[in-house]
Protein backbone atom coordinates (compact mmCIF):
# COMPACT_ATOMS: atom_id res chain seq x y z
CA UNK A 1 0.00 0.00 0.00
CA UNK A 2 1.28 3.45 -0.91
CA UNK A 3 1.77 6.05 1.79
CA UNK A 4 0.07 9.43 1.31
CA UNK A 5 1.37 12.48 3.21
CA UNK A 6 -1.03 15.42 2.88
CA UNK A 7 0.00 19.05 3.13
CA UNK A 8 -0.36 20.53 6.59
CA UNK A 9 -3.82 22.08 6.25
CA UNK A 10 -5.22 18.97 4.62
CA UNK A 11 -3.69 16.81 7.33
CA UNK A 12 -5.46 18.91 9.95
CA UNK A 13 -8.74 18.54 8.07
CA UNK A 14 -8.27 14.79 7.78
CA UNK A 15 -7.08 14.50 11.36
CA UNK A 16 -4.13 12.41 10.19
CA UNK A 17 -0.61 13.21 9.05
CA UNK A 18 -0.44 10.20 6.74
CA UNK A 19 -2.75 7.65 5.16
CA UNK A 20 -2.31 4.30 3.44
CA UNK A 21 -3.99 3.58 0.12
CA UNK A 22 -4.27 0.70 -2.31
CA UNK A 23 -4.99 3.02 -5.23
CA UNK A 24 -3.27 1.94 -8.43
CA UNK A 25 -2.47 5.43 -9.68
CA UNK A 26 -1.91 8.94 -8.34
CA UNK A 27 -5.22 10.04 -9.86
CA UNK A 28 -7.11 7.27 -8.10
CA UNK A 29 -5.43 8.07 -4.81
CA UNK A 30 -6.35 11.74 -5.06
CA UNK A 31 -9.92 10.78 -5.88
CA UNK A 32 -10.01 8.84 -2.63
CA UNK A 33 -8.71 11.81 -0.66
CA UNK A 34 -10.99 14.29 -2.39
CA UNK A 35 -14.00 12.28 -1.26
CA UNK A 36 -12.95 12.86 2.36
CA UNK A 37 -13.01 16.67 2.34
CA UNK A 38 -15.53 19.35 1.38
CA UNK A 39 -15.12 20.59 -2.22
CA UNK A 40 -14.22 24.15 -1.18
CA UNK A 41 -11.34 22.86 0.95
CA UNK A 42 -10.16 20.55 -1.79
CA UNK A 43 -9.89 23.53 -4.17
CA UNK A 44 -7.02 24.96 -2.14
CA UNK A 45 -5.16 21.69 -2.57
CA UNK A 46 -5.22 21.92 -6.35
CA UNK A 47 -2.26 24.30 -6.30
CA UNK A 48 -0.09 21.85 -4.41
CA UNK A 49 2.63 19.89 -6.17
CA UNK A 50 2.18 16.12 -6.15
CA UNK A 51 5.39 14.20 -5.57
CA UNK A 52 5.93 10.46 -5.81
CA UNK A 53 9.06 9.33 -4.02
CA UNK A 54 10.32 12.89 -4.23
CA UNK A 55 9.69 13.31 -7.96
CA UNK A 56 7.10 15.71 -9.36
CA UNK A 57 4.40 13.82 -11.24
CA UNK A 58 4.82 16.22 -14.17
CA UNK A 59 8.10 14.39 -14.84
CA UNK A 60 6.50 10.97 -14.32
CA UNK A 61 3.15 10.07 -15.87
CA UNK A 62 1.01 12.78 -14.33
CA UNK A 63 -2.20 11.54 -12.75
CA UNK A 64 -1.65 8.19 -14.43
CA UNK A 65 1.59 7.60 -12.55
CA UNK A 66 1.30 4.04 -11.21
CA UNK A 67 1.72 3.41 -7.50
CA UNK A 68 3.45 0.45 -5.96
CA UNK A 69 3.60 -0.75 -2.39
CA UNK A 70 5.91 1.46 -0.30
CA UNK A 71 5.67 4.38 -2.72
CA UNK A 72 5.34 7.71 -0.94
CA UNK A 73 3.04 10.40 -2.30
CA UNK A 74 3.39 13.90 -0.85
CA UNK A 75 1.36 17.03 -1.45
CA UNK A 76 3.36 20.20 -0.86
CA UNK A 77 3.06 23.91 -1.58
CA UNK A 78 5.74 26.19 -3.09
CA UNK A 79 8.25 27.46 -0.58
CA UNK A 80 11.42 29.50 -0.34
CA UNK A 81 13.89 31.02 2.07
CA UNK A 82 17.31 29.92 3.11
Amino acid sequence: MALFVPHYALAKRLGRTELRSEAATVGALLDEIRALVPPEEWRASLRAAILVNGRHIHYLQGMKTPLAADDEVWMVFPSSGG
Binding site: V5, A49, S80
Partner: peptide, 18 residues
Protein backbone atom coordinates in the same frame (compact mmCIF):
# COMPACT_ATOMS: atom_id res chain seq x y z
CA UNK B 1 4.52 32.44 2.64
CA UNK B 2 7.69 33.90 4.22
CA UNK B 3 5.89 36.31 6.58
CA UNK B 4 3.42 33.65 7.69
CA UNK B 5 5.76 30.71 8.19
CA UNK B 6 9.31 32.13 8.16
CA UNK B 7 11.98 30.13 6.37
CA UNK B 8 10.63 27.00 8.09
CA UNK B 9 8.01 27.03 5.31
CA UNK B 10 10.56 24.89 3.47
CA UNK B 11 10.43 21.88 5.77
CA UNK B 12 7.44 20.07 4.25
CA UNK B 13 8.45 20.86 0.67
CA UNK B 14 12.00 19.63 1.14
CA UNK B 15 10.77 16.50 2.91
CA UNK B 16 8.32 15.78 0.10
CA UNK B 17 11.07 16.42 -2.41
CA UNK B 18 13.30 13.98 -0.54
Amino acid sequence: ILPTLGTANLVMTCAGRN
